[in-house]
Design a protein around this nucleic acid. Structure first.
Lengths: 193, 193
DNA sequence: TGAAAAAATTAAGATAGATTAAGAACCTAG
DNA sequence: CTAGGTTCTTAATCTATCTTAATTTTTTCA
């Protein structure tokens, strides 16, 4: 367990002195989670924002108790939470589940708020993090509105090859908004050509 | 032309003293735009982020020269830009068009960057703005993945009644990701019941 | 005010993608 | 190493939504 990676992630956008670094580290909680275990369940208060040190996670929404809609994947060096419920400390709408054994650093809402007060530079860091997340989601919407399932599958593979390796077809399908059966048919078609 | 509204918008999340207020106002450019005119065209560098003082705007992506995908609407007291292209000062992917005669306050990227340096509180303001935008887009993705066109139409009407009044069926359809013909059929169905 | 343009509706035929069901190929835990 | 559970595939059938095209209604602006 080392904070090197998360500090490097932070240093992409802001520089911290020793004191600030030490304070930041003091607020982090280290957590290991086994494959298939859940970090967050629907209805629970979403207490933490999570930095993925290693492993892979998936956030999904369980629609009417059966169909799963995958909201996002997160692999090493990504941040993940149910942002809506985290910022409002409301019961979660989604599940967050480990796809592999994973190591995380967690920040509670309370600690993050303290961090913003004591080291205001972190406002900038999270401003950029939220900005990038917004841009990513907006691009995904644009693709969902304008592309066919096959085009979206191709985009996904070329944009997130490292993620595609780690997950099942079923999970890819639930991210693309199609059934696993239809994805299977798409793949068969592509293989032919 | 008065900055009251935009200052009130800012004061929802941060407080400014007189000097900061004056400096902020000095960076704003006031702009009026007539219905149907375009604030931004595909390929142009996206120079500004825009606060809507009055009126209404629509951001859309023009897919393969024909189908339009509406990314967002913005009415009074909203902010709008092509965020991806604004932050990277890249050629825009989208069009931004006035739905009605509108009045805006604009901030260039350069002025916004200066603002962040001189009044770091604005990092917090934009952190919250981006956070809310991210949450909104993520919720929209969730709905696109898990709901039928009719359910999305109902959500849109109940979430944005003020916007729904100002726009055409065609624009609603392009926001929902369906054809105007199909939306018309949905509406006919609802009217029956 | 009236002509032209744009939007909305209707309806018929087409299709992308869903559903169901069954078998084959895998994990994974005991 | 094996049994039971997932996951993946295949194929038939079904359905939500698209396409096209014609007609009506509404809006625009000269």
């Amino acid at each position: 367990m080392t904070q090197d990676l998360i500090l490097k992630n932070i240093s992409k956008h802001i520089s911290l002195n020793e004191e600030e670094t030490a304070y930041f580290i003091s607020l982090l909680k280290y957590k290991e989670i086994a494959k298939k275990d859940r970090l967050l369940k629907e209805g629970e208060i979403c207490k933490n924002i999570n930095y993925v040190h290693s492993g892979a996670l998936r956030a999904f929404y369980n629609h009417k108790g059966d169909k799963e809609a995958t909201i996002m994947f997160a692999i090493a060096d990504w941040w993940i939470t149910d942002m809506y419920c985290f910022v409002g400390q409301k019961p979660a709408m989604m599940y967050i589940e480990a796809i592999e054994d994973s190591c995380l650093f967690q920040l509670t809402k309370q600690n993050l708020d303290m961090l913003f007060v004591k080291v205001p530079k972190f406002e900038k860091f999270f401003r950029i993090l939220m900005q990038n997340a917004y841009i990513r989601e907006q691009l995904r919407i644009l693709q969902n509105l304008s592309q066919s399932a096959e085009e979206r599958y191709d985009s996904f593979l070329s944009k997130y090859p490292q993620i595609a390796q780690k997950i099942t077809q079923k999970q890819i399908a639930s991210y693309l908004g199609i059934t696993p059966e239809f994805l299977s048919a798409l793949r068969k078609n592509k293989a032919k050509v």
